[in-house]
Design a protein around this nucleic acid. Structure first.
Lengths: 204, 204
DNA sequence: GTCTATAGAGCGATAGAC
DNA sequence: GTCTATCGCTCTATAGAC
């Protein structure tokens, strides 16, 4: 579970946001009523409307708060500069996969996907703060390896698409659909296989 | 757009299914009312309930119908047996990517993802008929190449996860979130890059 | 800011005529 | 099978007291 970088809000406002996030994740946007949120947050419905103009705005606030957390977690996605290419890629791969399969990540992503036709602006906010920012962060890792002469990557963005795609493999889709997840052995095998492919293709 | 393999139903029933699919895709499950479906289908609400027991069953019928179409389209995913490894992989990659980025595929997938917490059984039905069946079909293609000595694949399922993951790249996520899609040049480049990786790793 | 109470609209599902 | 009409319920959002 991720925490925000900086928190500055009233206690009730946070309680509402927490309750709303849980309710939205569990029931979906449309099937979540403001009464449910109020009950779970331990406040009255009118109090919610004192903090948020509408159900839509409450939803947007949740996504934006999650984006802040995501961005923070992504920025912390660093790897020691003294490792070789294989160790670096393996480390960053494990961190990424852990982040992707986090229940919070999946729950929010499910909502963003579901509501993207009705809330296209939020989908963009999420994509920029999540996948896009994550890729930029990983590009720095790859570039560092290139600078040290441990990798030769002609197109960093394409290489990252390939690495991330291979890492997600079937695991992410299965988790997103709530299907029984592959065990930890397979996760390690996926990482090893993906790293092997990268090394084979982009060794200097 | 995909069509079902076999159709056997009354005209009104089909009209209801078509209208419901469009409404569910556009508005999401919970935000779609039976009145909307009735209006779009040109029937009365009671007629819908004469054909489907509940809103849930109507939703399930749509997913199942889509699964039939998907399975049919996937079974037709064949490639000439006389092509070399690169041409075969490129052809099957283009077919897969076209299928994945089809607006109908995306719309239904969005719904299945959104409702998977409340309809886990439907998520499994969809996964089996879609991704799982597609992978089995592609395994046959890879096995055929291996049999002809054009490829040496130690673990077919891992190789397929890698290939499919690289092909989806960022395109699928962007399309799923309704973000501006990369142009056709990039799609071709993605295919070429993925095929190149596969050949480099799994050449005999 | 926070509460109780409620307005006003829309929902899923059904009854009963044909 | 198909319709019109309607029941009983829940929803978002607000009014007004404190």
């Amino acid at each position: 579970m991720l925490k925000p970088c900086s928190a500055r809000s009233s206690a009730k406002r946070e309680a509402i946001l927490d309750a709303a996030k849980a309710s939205f994740v569990d029931n979906g946007y449309a099937a979540t009523s403001m009464d449910m949120v109020a009950a779970k947050a331990g406040v009255s419905k009118a109090t919610i409307y004192a903090h948020f103009q509408s159900k839509d705005e409450l939803f947007a606030a949740i996504i934006r708060r999650r984006c802040d957390s995501l961005a923070c977690a992504i920025d912390e996605l660093t790897v020691s500069e003294s490792l070789d290419a294989r160790a670096t890629l393996t480390a960053v791969a494990h961190k990424l996969l852990t982040m992707l399969l986090d229940p919070d990540t999946l729950g929010i992503y499910r909502m963003v996907v579901a509501e993207s036709p009705r809330h296209p602006d939020l989908a963009k906010v999420y994509f920029d703060a999540g996948p896009s920012r994550g890729k930029e962060r990983m590009a720095e890792v790859l570039n560092a390896l290139s600078r040290r002469g441990l990798l030769k990557v002609p197109d960093v963005w394409q290489a990252l698409d390939q690495l991330i795609g291979m890492l997600r493999g079937e695991h992410f889709t299965r988790a997103l659909l709530g299907l029984p997840t592959s065990d930890h052995t397979n996760l390690n095998r996926t990482v090893e296989g993906a790293v092997e492919m990268m090394l084979r293709a982009y060794a200097p």
